[in-house]
């Protein structure tokens, strides 16, 4: 039983069709990388998976929650699906601990003590236990992104989405974030990541999806997708399109 299932999803911004009928499935514990040029629809697809972008037609099922054009059941789905953004988006008026505790407390109804325990556990997971009382502004970009990951993990999601989470970071800071992702993957988290880090995708992702012009153009085991691309578009992307 796949934990993510996408059937013939169409997404338009006005006249511009960004997703032109995308179908895919992700099994529990699978790590899937989504690659492609900017404008190929890869980030949009990811954002559709937790309803940040409404879809016009098709069907999305994630962790047992169905999302259709009506947009019902969104909150239940979001309790099970975490997303981490390129720009971290920590809450600047809250300390690290409160950033992480907020959603478990108000969305899941945990007690302060339980939420605090989750904050401590997830911060330890991303290697920032000592920053629990820090303000987001006083952290480096890499540290902020790791807190954002911890914040998502504290909801104990069944699926994690990562939207170009290292693209805003200086090269010397990407490593610490990628290391966290790799640990998560090894621990069996179901992950979909939109990324420009090709070497990382090849090494860590079980499967890689190449998106092109709003369609799923080529997919397969990462080793094959990167080692022996079948379509000319993917070959061209891999040879010249690397940022």
């Amino acid at each position: 039983m796949p934990v993510v299932r996408v059937d013939d999803v169409h997404k338009r911004y006005g006249a511009l069709e960004v997703l032109k009928g995308v179908s895919m499935a992700v099994e529990r514990g699978e790590v899937v990388a989504i690659i492609g040029r900017s404008g190929s629809g890869k980030s949009t697809l990811l954002r559709c998976l937790n309803g940040l972008e409404p879809i016009q037609s098709g069907r999305i099922e994630v962790a047992g929650h169905v999302l259709d054009a009506s947009g019902r059941g969104l909150r239940a789905l979001r309790k099970d699906v975490g997303i981490v953004f390129q720009s971290y988006n920590l809450f600047p008026h809250l300390r690290v601990a409160e950033n992480i505790m907020l959603a478990p407390r108000v969305a899941l109804g945990l007690s302060k003590r339980e939420a605090r325990a989750r904050a401590e556990a997830t911060l330890a997971q991303v290697g920032l236990a000592e920053k629990i009382e820090a303000w987001p502004d006083n952290l480096s970009g890499g540290q902020q992104q790791r807190v954002a990951i911890a914040r998502s993990l504290a909801m104990q999601p069944k699926v994690m989405l990562f939207d170009e989470v290292t693209s805003a970071l200086d090269p010397e800071l990407t490593g610490e974030v990628l290391a966290v992702l790799e640990t998560l993957a090894r621990d069996g988290m179901t992950m979909l990541l939109v990324t420009h880090e090709m070497a990382f995708a090849r090494r860590v992702a079980d499967r890689t999806i190449f998106m092109h012009q709003g369609l799923l153009h080529e997919e397969g085991p990462s080793e094959e997708v990167f080692g022996a691309p079948r379509t000319p578009e993917l070959r061209q992307f891999l040879s010249g399109g690397l940022k």
Binding site: H93, L102, L108
Partner: peptide, 25 residues
């Protein structure tokens, strides 16, 4: 706007978004 998105993605209701994330800022 990303503050809205981040709090929505954490399953907060609109009222909770206002109360805990948007209005304090």
């Amino acid at each position: 706007h990303p503050q809205w998105e981040a709090s929505a993605a954490l399953a907060l209701t609109r009222t909770q978004q206002y109360r805990y994330v948007i209005l304090p800022q």
